[in-house]
Write a protein that binds this DNA or RNA. Structure first.
Length: 200
DNA sequence: ACTCGGATTCTCT
DNA sequence: GAGAATCCGAGTA
């Protein structure tokens, strides 16, 4: 893994529908006390802020979604269904409060620690480890208290995104998963045929 | 292969 | 007090 560069803030200062597919193939890096966990982003969803009824920011700023109304390139972590967290990155344009939801990664490094955090056996399909928004947060120890509001463009941040030069082969767009409103928009992006995307 | 429901708690009305 | 950008196991087939 030579030539790995941190994604700059300008990367996030675009429309979510542009940032989302651009994140595919990038490396998600989680720094813990002693260990470093790495995964490759293989599935994301764009949320268009005040232009998108399915977005958390649609109804305006609250204590929960305040991060989305700040500068781009920050982590928005929310708690859902009583037991899971989901990870997003804030985007521009400013005031629009758009974001990108990370739905699945391919585990690259630190698989043992990920399996321990997930409480599943190490052997088995990698998609079982990080193939879903709730799963990847559990595998990388991402919680609202630890990660929400973190600037992912900083070298000393516990959560970062980097480019290692990989050019994704084929990207496909589909409707988003698990939402009631605006359920028809093709804002879910994934690496075609990848074995770590969410679902069965 | 598919459908169904339970777990569990934060957030906003 | 309702509903939620989920996951997993059980049941049926």
């Amino acid at each position: 893994m030579a030539d790995v560069s941190l994604l700059p803030r300008t990367f996030y200062e675009r429309e979510p529908s542009e940032v989302a597919p651009a994140l595919l193939g990038k490396l998600l890096i989680r720094k813990l006390r002693k260990k470093i966990l790495v995964g490759r982003i293989v599935e994301v969803e764009a949320y268009l802020g005040n232009a998108d009824p399915a977005a958390h920011a649609y109804a305006g700023m609250t204590a929960r979604n305040a991060v989305l109304f700040g500068p781009a390139g920050h982590a928005y972590v929310y708690f859902i269904y009583g037991m899971y967290y989901c990870l997003n990155f804030s985007c521009e344009p400013k005031g629009m409060a758009g974001c990108v939801l990370l739905r699945a990664i391919e585990p690259i490094s630190g698989l043992e620690e990920m399996a321990r955090l997930r409480r599943v056996p190490l052997k088995g399909a990698p998609g079982r480890l990080t193939g879903g928004p709730g799963k990847l947060c559990q595998a990388l120890d991402i919680t609202r208290s630890a990660i929400n509001g973190v600037d992912v463009t900083q070298p000393d941040s516990p959560l970062q995104v980097a480019d290692d030069g990989l050019d994704p082969r084929e990207i496909v767009a589909t409707p988003r998963i698990g939402i009631r409103k605006a359920a028809d928009l093709p804002l879910r992006f994934l690496l075609k045929g990848h074995h770590c995307v969410s679902g069965r």
